[in-house]
Amino acid sequence: MSMFDDKYFAYVTSSYGITLLVLAGMVLWARAQFKSRTAKLDEMEKLGITRRSQKR
């Protein structure tokens, strides 16, 4: 019997599929937040808004 004929195929694939979506979603969310925040800080730096420790 192939894996696809198994009566539990839908349960196994859906659980792995949902897991993949959630784990990948967490990674993408963390990366997207980092990009947007570094972009915001860069934008502020261009406007001359920097932390005291950054001022030269």
Partner: peptide, 18 residues
């Protein structure tokens, strides 16, 4: 992921403070 989200949180606080 925890290190990544901690880094994001530090950056969020920096933006807010600025």
């Amino acid at each position: 992921l925890h290190l990544m989200t901690m880094r994001n949180e530090i950056l969020r606080r920096r933006i807010r403070s600025l």
